[in-house]
Structures are given as structure tokens and as C-alpha cells.
Amino acid sequence: MTAALRTQGLSRSFGALKAVREVSFTLEPGARHALIGPNGAGKTTFVNLLTGALPPSSGAVYLGADEITGLAQHERVKRGMTRTFQITTLFPGLTVLESVVLAIFERKGIAASLQTRVANRTAEIHEAIHIIRELRLERDAGSVTRSLPYGKQRLVEIAVALATRPRILLLDEPAAGIPAAESGEVFGVIAALPREVSVLFIEHDMDLVFRFAERITVLAQGSILAEGTPQEIGADPRVREVYLGDEAARG
């Protein structure tokens, strides 16, 4: 079976700093895969290389059987790969419904249309409302995103990503900055996504990682340190060392 997403020797340097080095990584179809690692391990840079927000210094990215290393970001989205951001990146002045409808328009290729009116696109609006309901945001559909509390904005972030109907969803710390009680809820939504969607998420909270991930990759200093099931990773002494060392350095 072909991997949903695969990288081959992917590297990226910023000047002398090698943020990501020689990473060969595989995301299986339907995966619930966590990417963890201490601060500065290169997790976000790696996601940026996957989405095309950054060009790699060397290496290749494959989506299914196709190489997509040279494709622009929006072309990768068209092929089914969507991301969310660590720091909330939304449309602050648009309502939740508008944001989701906009993403659906982009997916369907009608966002450049001058022929119709937004208010008449009932099919897209209904689909948007469906997604919004799934994320339990229906009470806020008409609210301007800027006015919502942070936790809700994280959900909008996911709603907008889902509206592109991704086959691969890259979530950069989806629960960052929201209270622990609510972060479980965010991950509950992610876990309940259909299995057609392969999910790769970056997360710091180990409880959440071990609760929701079925496979874990540990990144340290830009390269893969370990990969395996949560049991394997939990028992891996090298991982422990990296994390304990990191804790010690921070403390």
C-alpha cells in the first residue's frame, strides 16, 4: 500500500543552522500520527516543508505516488493536503460561516467566480453549516472570528482546514494555548474524523499524544531520533533522555 505522504532525505538549512536534516518519513493512510520533540527540534520547519510554505534545501516530498517537491502551496492543497497553524491564523474580520464557506469555494474551484452570489450558494452554505455543527460551533456561526474566545478560534482553525476536505491534515499544535479541559475536546474532534483522513499532528502535551496517537515520530535536532507505537516510544531510553535533558536544561 502506498504511503499517504512520504519524504526522502528532506533537509532545510537557514544559513549555518540545519533545521531539518535528512528526514525520511512516512505517513500511512488513515494514520493518527504524532510528531514530537523538544523545542527547536525542527517540527514546524518540517511541516512547512511538507506544505510547501518553505522550499527544501534538498530531498523530496511524495504525495501518494507523485512527487510534489516543486509544487506551490495552493496546488498541494488542491491535491488534498491541508494544515493548521500553531499560532492561530484565521480571517479575523470574517464570520465563522464566511470563513468556512470561503474554504469550500476554494476547494470547489469557484472562489474566483464572478457569476454567482455568495448568498445564493446554498449547497456550499449547507456543507459549511454541517462542518460547523460537527465542531459544535453552530452558536457562533454568525460571529466575527476576532470576537470569539481563543479556544473557539482553535476549533474554527480546524473547521476551515476540514472545509478543504483534506486527505491529509497537518495540525501544528491544535490545542496550543487552550485550557487542558478543553484541549481533550479538540482532540476528541480530531479522533472522530473519518479514516479517509490521515492526520499528522505536532503536540507538546504527552498525555494527549499518548491518548490519541497510534504512531509517534520523535524529532531531535532536525533528524528522526525514534519512531514507533506509543508503547515503543514510551519505553525508548533515548527519547526519555532527550526529554529529561530538555526538562533539565529548561529548569
Partner: peptide
């Protein structure tokens, strides 16, 4: 139009 929404 949808185009207008995408501009915003």
C-alpha cells in the same frame, strides 16, 4: 460574488 469573499 465568491471572488469578493476571497478578496476579503
Amino acid at each position: 460574488s465568491p471572488f469578493g469573499l476571497s478578496l476579503r
